[in-house]
């Protein structure tokens, strides 16, 4: 019932968008086959306890958290999970179409040639050490493709934003916080 037009979700159109939309030129540039990419795009089931992020997405994002938010907190499994839940909550307010775009991007990053195109590295994030992944992110943010720049921002922005919206994240900046609103009893 998310469909404001009252129509069934148009999976076929989504598939078409994969070819011609966000990552269309990346597909062409990397030489990946359309079947490989669109084959990955069908799963929209969220991971247990999540509303938008899927199990496969978490395999990419978990190793990225301590790199993108280095020094923000002790990167224990619990703290990483907590941060990813914050990101998930932000995404839960996003338009379904925007989430579909993000899912497509994350699907693409599961595929080695696409990863190479976007980030400059072939290896899955889960198979890189924190030091290696830090290097990957550094080269990723300097890649000279518009879609590379977009892809890093699309993933890092909601993650970093979610952290700095927390009380702990906000206070770590030196921001003393807002006044207190006291309601009449």
């Amino acid at each position: 019932m998310n469909n404001i037009a009252g129509q069934a979700p148009a999976n076929e159109s989504r598939r078409a968008f994969i070819r011609f939309g966000l990552i269309g030129s990346a597909v062409v540039a990397s030489g990946a086959t359309l079947a490989t990419v669109s084959g990955c795009a069908s799963n929209t089931t969220p991971a247990s306890g999540y509303r938008q992020l899927r199990d496969a997405d978490l395999t990419l994002l978990r190793p990225l958290v301590p790199v993108l938010l280095v020094g923000a907190f002790d990167p224990t499994d619990d703290n990483i999970e907590h941060t990813l839940h914050g990101m998930d909550q932000l995404l839960d307010s996003a338009a379904p179409g925007a989430i579909a775009d993000l899912h497509q991007l994350l699907d693409a990053l599961q595929v080695a040639p696409m990863r190479r195109f976007f980030t400059g590295s072939w290896r899955h994030f889960g198979n890189q050490s924190t030091a290696e992944l830090t290097e990957t992110v550094t080269q990723w943010q300097q890649r000279n493709y518009e879609l590379s720049r977009l892809s890093l921002r699309a993933i890092s922005q909601p993650l970093l934003w979610a952290w700095y919206l927390t009380e702990e994240g906000a206070r770590s900046t030196g921001y003393p916080g807002p006044p207190k609103k006291v309601l009449a009893a």
């Binding site: 993108l68 938010l69 020094g71 921002r153 922005q157 934003w161 700095y164």
Partner: peptide
């Protein structure tokens, strides 16, 4: 210059973000 919106605007990550966010005041 509130922390959430600033973290998005600065458009950096990792050590640089921590350093730049630490200068928020």
């Amino acid at each position: 210059v509130h922390p959430g919106v600033t973290s998005v605007l600065l458009d950096v990550s990792g050590e640089r973000l921590r350093e730049e966010m630490g200068e928020l005041p």
